[in-house]
């Protein structure tokens, strides 16, 4: 079971997830402190460790629009949040998959803060409201990356394959 800890609307930009003024901080080990920095209360709860891993952020359409900053994905990954949205902006979706942040595309999702969600492979059951919502699979192009555990291990694998297939000089 996963609790909804934050409910957001449509078009949540990467400026909201990870404000530009913190962009000099780049390392995935350091970005989590600035997650939703302009929502000081939520940010403080994250920093105090009050939000357990696997908690859910629910959003509307076009989550992660705007800048390509990867900090927006690594800052949420750092807290092991799960994002359930009606749909995602392309670059954010790719960054999240590349870093292993869990995203769920759920075009009809309606849930409130405090709701307990059961996220299955094809649907979400909101145990609080009793409603069910269908999940859309992630783009098939990304499946191999998800299976490899992210783009870094996937690229490493490909690099080693390339190396071993090259004739020795």
């Amino acid at each position: 079971m996963a609790k909804v800890v934050l409910k957001l609307g449509d078009d949540i930009s990467t400026d909201i997830i990870y404000p530009g003024r913190f962009m000099a901080t780049v390392l995935p080990s350091e970005t989590p402190q600035y997650a939703f920095a302009d929502f000081p209360e939520f940010n403080a709860r994250l920093k105090r460790g009050e939000i357990p891993p696997g908690s859910v952020v629910v959003a509307g359409k076009n989550f992660g629009c705007g800048s390509s900053r990867e900090q927006a994905a690594s800052t949420l990954k750092g807290h092991e949040l799960v994002v359930v949205a009606k749909n995602f902006a392309r670059i954010f979706l790719q960054n999240a998959i590349n870093l292993g942040l869990r995203l769920v595309v759920c075009p009809t999702i309606e849930a409130e803060e405090g709701d307990e969600l059961e996220i299955l492979s094809d649907r979400i059951i909101d145990q609080t409201s009793g409603r069910e919502f269908k999940i859309e699979p992630l783009p098939k192009a990304r499946q191999a990356i998800i299976e490899a555990g992210g783009l870094i291990p996937y690229t490493r694998q490909r690099l080693l394959e390339k190396k071993s297939s090259r004739p020795k000089i």
Partner: peptide, 9 residues
């Protein structure tokens, strides 16, 4: 546009 990890790849 792509992210930083994708660029590393």
């Amino acid at each position: 546009g792509i992210g930083a990890t994708e660029m590393a790849s």
